[in-house]
């Protein structure tokens, strides 16, 4: 049996967490862009784009991420389309996080009082100008805490990609604890690394919140 030292375990875990970091970044950046597009469909006045955005959110929030990953990787494979694990994981995580981000942001826009809309209309602003100068800047302030809160969820959500063969942090922990028979050391370190990834996000959010000085 191979003997693992503490340093072996730690370096292997840190090396595996690069996937956790990369997947989180891809999911958050891609999901954010997609959510922004969906947001304008969701809050716009046109009826059909709004309905489609709502349907999208219902589908991706209403099904487990694990199943979405499985379908993206094996489902397309069954149809003869070869998808790489990286592409399948990114696509599934982006689609999934967009569904949550668009709901979070829609809520923030909805929270802007009716009076703001009416006042800006009274000043002769059109829809685009109202959005640009009145509604979105206020919504942005509101959006910071829940968005960062969700990004922490995304970091932890990447653990599910091990189902399609990613050796990310959680999976590396499982594999290592199986080979080293030191589960408490291994999973203790896994937890600490996740904490080290997520804690700065929370601290950053608190700072940003104070800086933007939310009025509510």
């Amino acid at each position: 049996m191979t003997q693992f030292t503490f340093v072996d375990i730690l370096t292997n875990l840190l090396w595996a967490s690069r996937w956790t970091v990369l997947l989180s970044l891809a999911a958050f950046a891609g999901g954010g862009l997609l959510a922004l597009g969906l947001l304008f469909a969701a809050i716009g006045r046109a009826r059909w784009p709004g309905r489609l955005a709502r349907l999208y959110v219902e589908i991706f929030q209403g099904t487990p991420l694990l199943m979405q990953l499985f379908l993206a990787f094996f489902g397309l494979g069954l149809l003869g389309i070869d998808v790489s694990p990286w592409l399948a994981a990114c696509a599934a995580l982006i689609l999934w996080s967009a569904a949550f981000l668009v709901e979070i942001w829609r809520g923030c826009v909805m929270a802007i009082g009716r009076g703001q809309w009416e006042a800006s209309a009274a000043l002769g602003m059109g829809y685009a100008a109202q959005m640009r100068h009145v509604v979105l800047p206020q919504a942005l302030r509101l959006a910071v805490p829940p968005t960062v809160g969700f990004s922490v969820q995304v970091v932890k959500g990447t653990a599910l990609t091990s189902i399609i063969g990613f050796l990310e942090l959680t999976k590396a922990g499982t594999v290592l604890s199986n080979a080293s028979f030191q589960p408490f050391t291994v999973f203790g370190l896994v937890a600490l690394i996740y904490f080290a990834l997520c804690f700065p996000l929370s601290v950053g959010a608190r700072r940003l919140e104070r800086k933007l000085n939310v009025a509510h």
Binding site: M1, T2, Q3, F4, T5, D8, N12, W15, A16, L167, A172, V175, L176, N178, A179
Partner: peptide, 11 residues
């Protein structure tokens, strides 16, 4: 699944 498949110290 040792001893059928596991990893060495370099994964």
């Amino acid at each position: 699944f040792p001893p059928f498949g596991s990893v060495g110290t370099d994964m």
